[in-house]
């Protein structure tokens, strides 16, 4: 038996590290999730269905997933441009911009929420110019999306940067020598090469947006049926000691985001496996 263990790997510490990994996963992830499902399972089906299909709740699903999808898409686009600029060009201040990208990671989300609200509300520095144009940036789905882009952007930039740095410059030169224009080279050579990383960034930004609470509650205004996100509803239910309803909503969120992330991962995996040559 001892021999068999030894033959598994020349690297020491397998048992210890795997044990720690499983302990951590169980304590921090699996046990709370299991508790959530157990709590939900105590609710009779008909009541559960009522809880999760209440019009106000359904409106919050639509807003949360809709705004998160839009925000992740915008983050992907902006993040791609930012990562491209930072990787492909050398200019003064590049490193400073590079450092600023991480700010949303470090800032307490409530702070960014309040800051964005102050900026975008009717009297804010930006909001006052948007108001005459008929654009309501704060206390609207638009405001929520802006907050989610702010939160999601660094995920896209940070996942794309290494992929862009590893781009094969010679492949671009080869494309150029074969007569491809810069645009064609980008569309047919560069973009497909970074698509897996872009999808990963998109998925991370999306996942983060679905669960985001702090930055959104301030800018959302939290009007029932209009600007209420599901996370807020869960907190509201908890404050009313309606723990069963809160856990039911949480389970819906969990399953929905799991389905979306799974879909993105399958797509990403299918693209990536080609490059490794596994058919």
């Amino acid at each position: 038996m001892a021999f068999k263990l030894k033959s598994r790997s020349v690297l020491p510490g397998f048992g210890l590290t795997l044990g720690l990994t499983l302990t951590y996963l169980s304590l921090v992830v699996l046990i709370p999730l299991a508790a959530l499902f157990l709590k939900t399972a105590t609710i009779p089906w008909d009541r559960l269905w009522l809880m999760i299909s209440e019009p106000r709740v359904v409106a919050s699903y639509k807003l949360t997933f809709g705004a998160s999808l839009v925000a992740a898409a915008v983050s992907a686009l902006l993040g791609f441009i930012i990562a491209w600029t930072l990787v492909r060009y050398r200019f003064p201040g590049r490193r400073i911009i590079d450092a600023i990208i991480d700010m949303p990671f470090a800032l307490p989300t409530a702070v960014s929420g309040i800051a964005l609200t102050a900026l975008l509300s009717k009297n804010g520095w930006i909001g006052r110019y948007l108001e005459p144009l008929g654009i309501k940036a704060a206390f609207s789905p638009l405001g929520i999306t802006i907050a989610l882009v702010f939160i999601g952007l660094p995920f896209v930039v940070r996942t794309l940067q290494p992929a862009l740095e590893e781009l094969d410059g010679e492949a671009e030169e080869a494309a150029a020598s074969l007569g491809a224009s810069r645009f064609t080279t980008f569309v047919r050579v560069i973009f497909p090469s970074i698509l897996p990383a872009l999808l990963t960034g998109f998925a991370l930004a999306f996942a983060r947006a679905i669960g985001e609470y702090g930055s959104v509650v301030f800018i959302a205004g939290n009007m029932p049926m209009k600007t209420e996100i599901t996370s807020l509803l869960i907190v509201t239910k908890l404050e009313q000691f309606d723990i069963a309803a809160a856990s039911a909503l949480a389970v819906v969120m969990l399953l929905a985001s799991f389905a979306v992330l799974l879909a993105i991962n399958v797509l990403q995996w299918r693209i990536a496996k080609r490059y490794r040559g596994v058919m």
Binding site: D168, A171, E173, R188, V189, S193, I271, R274, Y275
Partner: peptide, 13 residues
């Protein structure tokens, strides 16, 4: 011109 690189520079995807 046809250019061939040392590290092939094939389009991996």
């Amino acid at each position: 011109v046809g250019f061939v690189f040392q590290h092939y520079a094939l389009f991996k995807h």
